[in-house]
Nucleic acid binder design. Structure first.
Lengths: 335, 335
DNA sequence: TTGAAAGCGCTAACAT
DNA sequence: ATGTTAGCGCTTTCAA
C-alpha cells in the first residue's frame, strides 16, 4: 500500500486510521501524516479486497422477477436505493424477465459477487417460488409472496385500499357504484374487489346490487367497459376502476358519450400512476400504490439484522382525492 | 480451496479446469475428478477474489442522473442488462437524483467497487457535466452529452423523428398541421420542432403558416393547448404533440368538444410510451423512443473494447402508425 | 502506540 | 500434465 509508504507507517496503521477502527489508539501525529498521504494520493480502499477479507460486499442484490420492468420496479428501486446509500450499500440489479430458470441463474450470479442480501421483487403482486439459492443470504420479498409465507414479504394493503376508495365515494353520497375491475385472476384485483364489497356492506348496501365488470388493467379495457355500461339503461353515479390506466380509458369513453366527469359521473382510479393520474383532466382521484415506501421498507428490514419477523408486512395505500370525484347530481330519475 | 483437497489436486489445477484456461492441458482423468468435486461441493468461484486478482469485477456501473427514475431509466436499464448478462456482467445501479454532487460521490462508490465501466444516463436528453472521477474507467453517455462531445454519447435522433412524423401526416394529405410542443427549453423539443419544420419545407410548405403552441410534456398541457386551439376560428386537420402524454390530453380535449379522432382531426404523439400509446382509444400513432435499443447499444459499445469512437451515436426513432391518424376529411370549407 | 504476519479466495508465472 | 509459489489489497490478531 503506497499510502503506508508515503506516510512512513505500516499498512495496518493506515487501515486503523482510515476505518477509525474502534479500540485502536493512534497518536494524533501519525494520524495526520496518514490522512495527508491519503489526501495526496487520493486513496480509496478497494472494496473488493475489503469484501474478500471481511466476507461482505456492501452490496445488495435486487431481483426484478417479471417481464415488465417499468414504473413499479423503478419506484421500488428508487426507494430501496435511497435507504441503501444511507447505509453505504449499493444495489446490484438483475432482471429475470419472469422466468424462474433465469431467476435461479441470476441469483447465483449475484451470490458469486457476494451480495450481502437479496430483494426479490415482482411487478404484479403475486405468489412466486423463490429459487433455493436465495436461502444463502437474508432475503425479502417485495410485492410478492411464497406459498407458506416462509420468507418475509412486503405487500400493499389492497383490501384496505379498495375499501377506502369505496368509502370515499359512499361518503360523497354515492349509492350506485360500478366497479370495472382489472384482470380477475390477479391477486390485487381480488383484494381490491373484496375491499369494495366490504365497504358496501359496511354502509348497509348489498354488493349484489352493484355492477362489477371484469377488465384487464389496460386503458382500452376501461374504454370498452364504459361502453358496455352505456349500453345498459342505467348509468351508476360513480365508477371505480381497476387502475389509473383503465380510469383514463373510462374517462375517454364517458366524455365521448357526452357525459361529464365528475358532474354526471364520478371516476375513481387506483395506483396514482406517475405522470398520469395527476396530469389527466380531470385529475384522477385514486389510491396510491406506495412503491417507493415499499422499497425503502425492504432495505430497512434487511439492514435491521436480516429479516426480523417472518410473514407479511402490509403497507397502507393512501387515498388521493382529486377532481374526478364529486357528490352525485341530485337527479333521482334514471339515466 | 476444499475442492482441491477433495479432488486431491492443487488449487491451480482446479482453477484451470473450472476456467478452461487456454493453453493448459489437463488429463481427462483429473478433470473428471475436479468436476466431480465441484459438483459435490456445489462450488462456485468467488468473484470478489477473482476480481481482486484479475483487476476486473465483471460489473458495470449504471448511473441514472436525474430526479425521475421512471420509464426511461427502466427501459434503458433493461436493454443494457440484457447485453450485460450475455457478456457475464452485472449492473451496479445508482441514482443521483439529478445532483452533480451526488453523482460525483456515487461514481466514487462505484469505482471503489471496481466497476469495469460506466453508463451515465439522463432521463430528459440534455447536456451534463461528467464528474472527473468517471474518467478512470471507460464511460459512455446515454441520452445526454458533454459540452465538446468529449465522451461518446448515445442519443435518439429526434430531428429525424419529428421529420418522419410530419412526413407521415403530409403523405396522408394533411396541409394544415399544428404542433403542440413540449417544454420549449428542452433539447428534444427543439430537435423535434426542427424536424417538423424541415418536413414542412421539404413539402413546399411554409412553417410560418402552421400553428406552434408551447406546452410542457404534461398531459394537462395537451388538454389546455387544444382548448386554446379550439378558441381560434380555424382548427387544423392534424395535431402533432410533444409526447404521448400531451397527445392523451389533447385527445381528451378534442373528444370533449365533440371532435372525432381521427375522422375530424388526426393526432400524432411521440415516445410510444409503454402501456399508454397502444392502449388508448384510438390507439396513438406515434414515434418510438428506442430506449431499450439505446441501453443495449451502450453496453455493446462498452464491451467492444471501451468507447471506440468519440462523438455522438444517433439512434433512429421508428414511426409507429396506429389509429389516431387518417387522411383529412374532404371538406374544403373552414372550421 | 505501532508493526509484523497471516490469510480472505483466487490466478498466472514459473517450475517440475 | 500438474504443482508450487507469490501476490492482488485489505484487515486483524498478536506481539513489541
Amino acid at each position: 500500500m503506497d499510502v503506508a509508504r508515503l506516510a512512513g507507517v505500516s499498512p495496518a496503521t493506515v487501515s486503523f486510521v482510515v476505518n477509525r477502527t474502534a479500540g485502536q489508539t493512534i497518536s494524533d501525529e501519525t494520524r495526520q501524516r496518514v490522512l495527508q498521504a491519503v489526501a495526496e494520493l487520493d486513496y480509496r480502499p478497494n472494496r473488493a479486497a475489503q469484501g474478500l477479507r471481511q466476507g461482505r460486499s456492501a452490496t445488495i442484490g435486487f431481483v426484478n422477477h417479471d417481464v415488465d420492468f417499468g414504473e413499479f420496479a423503478a419506484s421500488a428501486i428508487k426507494g430501496a436505493h435511497e435507504v441503501c446509500i444511507r447505509q453505504g450499500n449499493l444495489l446490484l440489479l438483475v432482471n429475470t424477465g419472469g422466468s424462474n430458470h433465469q431467476a435461479a441463474q441470476l441469483i447465483v450470479e449475484l451470490l458469486d459477487r457476494q451480495v450481502d442480501a437479496l430483494i426479490f421483487a415482482a411487478v404484479g403482486t403475486r405468489p412466486v417460488v423463490l429459487p433455493d439459492a436465495a436461502r444463502r443470504v437474508p432475503t425479502i420479498l417485495l410485492n410478492c409472496f411464497t406459498s407458506h409465507d416462509s420468507t418475509p414479504a412486503i405487500l400493499p394493503d389492497e383490501v384496505r385500499g379498495g375499501r377506502e376508495a369505496t368509502q370515499a365515494l359512499l361518503e360523497l353520497g354515492h349509492r350506485d357504484i360500478a366497479y370495472l375491475t382489472g384482470k380477475p385472476s390477479q391477486w390485487a384485483t381480488k383484494a381490491r374487489l373484496r375491499g369494495f364489497r366490504d365497504a358496501l356492506r359496511g354502509a348497509g348496501l348489498n354488493p349484489r346490487d352493484h355492477i362489477v365488470l371484469s377488465g384487464n388493467y389496460h386503458a382500452d379495457s376501461g374504454y370498452e367497459l364504459v361502453r358496455t355500461l352505456l349500453r345498459r339503461n342505467r348509468l351508476p353515479t360513480a365508477i371505480m376502476c381497476g387502475n389509473d390506466r383503465m380510469a383514463v380509458g373510462a374517462l375517454l369513453g364517458l366524455v365521448e358519450a357526452g357525459i361529464r366527469v365528475p358532474k354526471d359521473v364520478s371516476v375513481m382510479g387506483y395506483d396514482d400512476q406517475f405522470q398520469l393520474a395527476a396530469e389527466i383532466r380531470p385529475a384522477l382521484s385514486t389510491v396510491r400504490l406506495p412503491y417507493p415506501a415499499m422499497g425503502r421498507l425492504a432495505a430497512e428490514q434487511l439492514a435491521a439484522g436480516g429479516p426480523a419477523r417472518n410473514g407479511r408486512t402490509l403497507v397502507h395505500c393512501p387515498l388521493v382525492m382529486r377532481d374526478s370525484t364529486a357528490a352525485p347530481a341530485r337527479r333521482r330519475a334514471g339515466s
